[in-house]
Design a binder for these strands. Structure first.
Length: 274
DNA sequence: ATATAGGCCTGACAGC
DNA sequence: TGCTGTCAGGCCTATA
């Protein structure tokens, strides 16, 4: 379940595999459900002869800038994987889309759940105006992400603090695992209403969001269930998780609580998190 | 207007 | 053993 650290790790691996500078020869689509605003044919026409100029991210979206400012956007959702593989390498199960590049290189999008998404945009204006992108807020590693920013972003909502923090229109990149970690590190219960969170707690949340995401990036992401950024690139942050999925609180050693917050499995400590 | 529930999707797993 | 039901969760859409 890729969140920001996993997305950044995937991009790093793609760059390490020298994807930038390669061009698309053709595209094979095995599951067109992933194509949200194109067909196999139009995607193929869109990408043919386009060169990868840069790979960035907007929240959890992976953004490929191509020649002539065309843009390819991929979201991995829970199980999606992007592997750069030599043309000779045998395809694994769950291959949804195979991008054939020059130099016997392929970029393969595997997704056992078919939840991933692919969008294409003719230019930067259409990308910026698109419904998926324009609602994505800055992420915690952005220099503009400050306590004041967060307080201001949440001033018109009064949902649970956990729900507000994983809402990508408030702050992007945080998902269900890291939000539990951030709130635990900040001693704030995920069930607190936004309006009841105090300024000093927002300071902690802001600081811990930056710290935890940076640490996770340094570890190459979290490998829970099946996340791999590429073949043999496995993150290690799961070894540093303090609360998510844990039975015992590492601080007070009492049993953790498990509940649902807006449908999301939530682990917290009702003694340490107020 | 915001808040929340349901749906997408399929593998893993628990219970019978 | 093999079936059925439930859960996982990012994001979208429908409903309250």
């Amino acid at each position: 379940m890729p969140e920001l650290p996993e997305v950044i790790t995937v991009i790093k691996v793609l760059k390490d595999e020298d994807l930038i500078g390669k061009h698309f020869v053709s595209v094979n689509v095995y599951n067109s459900k992933l194509l949200k605003n194109s067909t196999p044919k139009s995607l193929n026409n869109f990408l043919k002869n386009e060169t990868v100029k840069d790979i960035q991210h907007k929240g959890k979206y992976i953004v490929f800038t191509l020649s002539k400012n065309k843009i390819l956007v991929i979201h991995l959702r829970m199980e999606g994987k992007l592997f750069v593989e030599h043309s000779n390498i045998e395809e694994k199960k769950y291959l949804c889309v195979k991008f054939i590049l020059n130099n016997n290189t392929t970029l393969r999008f595997y997704d056992s759940r078919m939840f991933g998404t692919i969008h294409i945009f003719d230019n930067l204006e259409k990308y910026n105006d698109s419904s998926i992108i324009k609602k994505i807020a800055i992420d915690p590693l952005d220099k503009n992400f400050t306590t004041m920013y967060l307080i201001n972003a949440l001033k018109n909502t009064n949902t649970y603090i956990k729900t507000a923090l994983i809402d990508q229109s408030n702050v992007s990149g945080i998902g269900n695992i890291y939000v539990d970690e951030i709130l635990f590190a900040s001693f704030v219960s995920p069930l607190r209403r936004v309006k009841n969170v105090k300024p000093n707690e927002y300071i902690l949340i802001t600081k811990n969001a930056k710290k935890i995401l940076k640490d996770a990036i340094a570890c190459g992401g979290t490998t829970i269930s099946t996340f791999e950024s590429s073949n043999n690139h496995i993150g290690s942050y799961q070894n540093k998780l303090k609360i998510h999925g844990k039975k015992i609180c590492p601080i007070c050693k009492r049993k953790t609580a498990f509940t649902k917050v807006n449908g999301r499995g939530t682990t917290y400590c009702k003694y340490c998190q107020k």
